[in-house]
Amino acid sequence: MKSGMWTWPIILGVLTTIGLLSALLGDGVWDALSWVTLGVPVAVCVWYGWMRRTKAAA
């Protein structure tokens, strides 16, 4: 198994969880925290999925 395979999935999962909860618990800065933490997984999808054009290791 490639080392660190789960590092990014776990970080993104934790960010998503924070994003889902923070706007529920408060307004203002808590909403903003949600936007950032939910925005990261979205940005990761778009970047690796469609924007990165370097050759991947096969």
Binding site: P9, L12, T16, V44, C45, Y48, A56
Partner: peptide
Amino acid sequence: FGDVRRERSTRIKWLDLHNLLGIVTLV
């Protein structure tokens, strides 16, 4: 993480995309 093998077949590319998008949107 995030590797998408675009130079191989279309199916391989979509397999990698499926795995990438699936694991990132998981939670």
